[in-house]
């Protein structure tokens, strides 16, 4: 493999991690969704580059799915939901930004150390890809954990799924069927969660998941 292709793949996957970090310190919902759209665009680029260097045409389909659904349809849908719910002014992180960023750095370190240790004989590109993918998954989980608002938890979940797609495309010979089914399951999860959000809103007048806890008679 020549140096340039490797470097570009590395750049794109690293960019994805960087965008994940950007997601961590957004405290406005619109900004968070915009960053998520950027995340999906970088993912689409990365997948397309993988399709090019692996000469695997079906990966272009994956890239297209990522671009259309994750970078356009879902962010637009989320924008509308937020407007209809009227929560675009909410500031809603549960843990301080600094702590979250530090935790994020720790997670990335952990996934690097771990992946480089357990895959010493794998192809270097796949190794890097896996390490980045694990970082993105952990950062997505961190977004879900540190947010109170259901919408931002959905965004965290979607970014986590982006990490999965990155890992899948890094490994050669991943069948298209699997990727499409993953993509559609995410879409359905989005629809279900969207419906669910409105139901929560109707009942509790808020999408802060804390309202659910209050309803159950629990206290944080």
């Amino acid at each position: 493999m020549n140096g340039l292709t490797f470097d570009i793949a590395h750049l794109l996957a690293g960019g994805l991690v960087l965008v994940s970090f950007m997601m961590l310190y957004q405290d406005r919902l619109f900004a968070l969704i915009n960053v998520f759209a950027l995340h999906a665009i970088v993912l689409a680029l990365s997948v397309a580059w993988q399709a090019y260097i692996q000469d695997a045409h079906h990966l272009y389909v994956t890239a297209a799915i990522a671009l259309v659904f994750k970078a356009i349809v879902i962010p637009v849908g989320l924008h509308r939901i937020i407007q209809r719910l009227g929560i675009h002014r909410d500031v809603e992180t549960a843990v301080g930004i600094g702590t979250t960023m530090l935790a994020g750095i720790g997670l990335v370190t952990l996934s690097m150390v771990l992946m480089l240790r357990v895959t010493p004989e794998a192809d270097p590109l796949a190794r890097e890809d896996l390490a980045f993918a694990l970082s993105i998954i952990l950062l997505g989980l961190l977004v879900m954990v540190t947010r109170r608002n259901a919408v931002s938890q959905v965004v965290g979940f979607m970014s986590l799924e982006n990490g999965l797609v990155l890992a899948a495309t890094g490994a050669k010979g991943m069948p298209l069927v699997v990727e499409i089914s993953v993509a559609f399951s995410i879409l359905i999860a989005f629809i279900v969660i969207g419906v669910f959000l409105f139901r929560i809103r109707e009942r509790f007048d808020s999408v802060d998941v804390g309202a659910l806890d209050d309803y159950r008679g629990e206290h944080r």
Binding site: A94, L107, L110, R148, L212
Partner: peptide, 15 residues
């Protein structure tokens, strides 16, 4: 527990 706490527990266990 609250939903977020459950998520945190799962997350911490994974870590």
């Amino acid at each position: 527990l609250t939903i977020r706490r459950y998520l945190t527990l799962v997350f911490l266990f994974l870590i």
